[in-house]
Design a protein around this nucleic acid. Sequence first.
DNA 1: CAAAAACTAGACCAATTGGTTAGTTTTTTG
DNA 2: CAAAAAACTAACCAATTGGTCTAGTTTTTG
Lengths: 218, 218
Amino acid sequence: MNTKEKNATNSIGDKRRKSILKAAEKVFAQNGFKGGSIQMIAKQANLPKTNVLYYFKSKLALYQALVNEILHTWNSSFDQVTENDDPAHSLAQYIAEKMEMSRKNPNASKIFGLEILNGAQSFDATFKQNHKIWFDGRVKVINAWIANGKLAPINAEYLLFHIWASTQHYADFATQIKDLRNKAMSKSDYQEATQHVIKLILQGCGLKVPTHFLEKPQ
Amino acid sequence: MNTKEKNATNSIGDKRRKSILKAAEKVFAQNGFKGGSIQMIAKQANLPKTNVLYYFKSKLALYQALVNEILHTWNSSFDQVTENDDPAHSLAQYIAEKMEMSRKNPNASKIFGLEILNGAQSFDATFKQNHKIWFDGRVKVINAWIANGKLAPINAEYLLFHIWASTQHYADFATQIKDLRNKAMSKSDYQEATQHVIKLILQGCGLKVPTHFLEKPQ
DNA sequence: CAAAAACTAGACCAATTGGTTAGTTTTTTG
DNA sequence: CAAAAAACTAACCAATTGGTCTAGTTTTTG
């Protein structure tokens, strides 16, 4: 019987579900939602197509489950930062975390990027609201830093966009980066790039890079 | 008879071809290559599907024609910059042009971004080679600036990635930016954003922002 | 161990896709 | 104005798509 309601502790189904999500992440990252087919995902996961549809009632349901999973990992220490924290350290830490996200989860980053690029149609309203709330909160903290003289005047929104852009770029444009450098980004290349991004942005805001981030980020 | 080879001066066919390309740009930007259908493009251009296939022999041919057209507009004044030019002015000008490109051709930027995101499969080898040559040339100029003491030491490659990332972001992530700001970017918003990006990056490299770019970029 | 739940999978279907054929209409031009 | 060239389009097709149905197998559990 197809109840299609399995609890999370079921070991066999849980394994399969995870492997399907992993396969889907790869397929969707390379082909987008419409371009990725259930067949391709099934093949990637070494399963018959029907089996995929047993675990996820439709392609859209699978995709949204995947997107939700990705969004849940989208947190960082910057979420907890307050106006009492040090701007240089907080921003450097945030940048380092974002770069690490691009390095470790390029496919998740790509799906996230693809989603936004074509209109964030699959993000549910709740996420959008929460994201907006998060954004407004972070803007407030940055503005408080400015008000308190801890940070030179700058538009907080553009600063956040700037951070997202320059860190996410390393996942989304990995192909181009690899082609132009003649080699893929290694772990140590990522460390070097992270230092550069931190330095560029912090110095760009008139902040001094904390010594902790001068040698090895994170 | 289907010669399918029309000269560029033919006015009727040329108009149609342009309108099809414009429709295709919109459709592909929103749905990607696999996600966009000839039907959708035809509808967007107010034409029957067969008519689209009359001008472009296949979906792939249409897409590649579009990509080529986009790539031809991808030039900027930075192409001609030499080590004798002023780094601050040259970089600021380049950033301003890239921002203007994002503002005026968001769909082209999105297609470009989508293409790279899933592996630049449709870029022909010639373009890739030329792009690499261009990139290496620009890296050399930047390194010469550093050698001549005009610019503080920095990895030229990461600097270029940084510029691309932060300018292209405004096209690719326009939806997110609009949602978080509660309004789309107006022309004057773009001017403000451009000033911020220029200031962030130039200051990030230890350069002083030329007065010309302090008030109204370009 | 037996019943129930969870899982696997082949056959099948309607809808959409990219693309062809074959012919008609419109425009150009000698 | 007539013939040739260019522009257009309805009808059709094979392939792929997302998804269902049905039935069998394995695993869990009382």
